[in-house]
């Protein structure tokens, strides 16, 4: 299987709330740090890509976020304008605006058109070779297959015309496993793991895009080494007076019980999540790379967190 960052186009998806955008931003940053000319694009209208780099808002027109790294936000109307002016060579650019608005309306009504304007823009950047790698912070798992399968849908529905003519090369790039891959981000919880496994199957059935990797995000650290958990249990035990917690409390001069409770919560969370993580590992198609990113205990999720996640991904990818 082609290595993740050796591809040209990577779509990052996952259930809402699992940190899909964090992973997309960090993968792009890592690629840029590896010397690849990288574009990271967000599809969702939420517009928080910029937060991960603390650079101010991004727009349809790409801007430099870091050395080797450019960022943009998808806007289908702008994408259509770009497409029209590139393809139709319409003399009066002012008229494109009116036309584009009308088409935006058609795009809303006609199935697949909006999706193809979105995916098409990134595919076009790949075809033109503007970047070594394009990372797309794509839509959440519920909508991703519709988006990735849009060129096929258009082929079925539209028999002639320019849009139809564009779908062949799009499908070719999407289906080329050396060039294009999807990454599903999962959190080690029940629902995200379920959704990841379902999506892995749907990608295979409904699209031509290969699942290039799964990222298990926010994995809690193992608190104790070998034999230490027994020590902790004895320490937290409350079956004699004075209990170890009482002795400790007296020696340190403060409340120890909440600290032990906190560690207990950490241990239990790690354990329940471990079950889901194991299920993810076992039930993914054989050979799918599974990358682990630890839970970050920190104040904010800005540029610093993006760099840290990029470091963890680098380690997982063997850089």
């Amino acid at each position: 299987m082609r290595e993740l960052l050796e591809r040209k186009l990577v779509f990052v998806t996952g259930k809402g709330g699992v940190g899909k955008s964090t992973i997309a931003a960090s993968l792009a940053l890592l690629a840029a740090q590896q010397g690849k000319r990288t574009l990271v694009g967000e599809i969702d209208a939420k517009g928080n890509l910029a937060d991960f780099f603390e650079t101010g808002p991004t727009a349809f027109k790409e801007r430099e976020l870091a050395p080797n790294l450019w960022g943009m936000s998808m806007d289908t109307e702008e994408s259509l304008k770009e497409y029209l002016s590139l393809q139709l060579k319409i003399p009066l650019l002012a008229k494109v605006g009116v036309l584009a608005r009308t088409f935006d309306f058609v795009a809303n009504a006609a199935p697949g058109v909006k999706e193809i304007l979105t995916v098409g823009k990134f595919l076009w950047e790949v075809r033109e070779g503007h970047y070594d790698l394009v990372v797309v912070d794509a839509v959440a798992s519920g909508h991703i297959t519709g988006q990735l399968a849009a060129p096929q849908a258009i082929q079925e529905l539209v028999q002639v015309g320019m849009v139809r003519d564009q779908t062949d090369w799009m499908i070719e790039i999407l289906g080329d496993h050396d060039q294009t891959g999807a990454v599903i981000v999962a959190a080690p919880e029940e629902m995200p793991v379920n959704e990841t496994l379902e999506l892995a199957a749907r990608l295979r059935e409904e699209t031509v895009v290969e699942l290039a990797a799964v990222v298990a995000n926010r994995v809690l650290p193992e608190l104790f080494g070998r034999g230490e958990e027994e020590v902790f249990e004895a320490l937290a035990a409350d079956d004699r007076t004075p209990s170890p917690a009482d002795l400790l409390g007296a020696a340190v001069g403060g409340p120890v019980r909440p600290i032990l409770d906190g560690a207990q919560l950490a241990v239990t969370l790690r354990r329940t999540r471990g079950v889901h993580l194991a299920r993810l590992r076992d039930e993914l198609p054989t050979g799918t790379p599974l990358l682990y990113v630890p839970y970050l205990f920190q104040r904010s999720h800005g540029a610093r967190a993006t760099r840290q996640v990029a470091e963890h991904l680098a380690e997982e990818l063997g850089y």
Partner: peptide
């Protein structure tokens, strides 16, 4: 060292205490 010996060696118990304290401080940030 203030804890009963049967819990484990002071080194081992010390490591656990450190982990427990650090875990609390980590979660506290969150």
């Amino acid at each position: 060292k203030v804890l009963p010996e049967e819990l484990g060696s002071p080194d081992q118990v010390g490591r656990v205490l450190r982990e427990v304290g650090e875990s609390f401080l980590n979660f506290q940030v969150v």
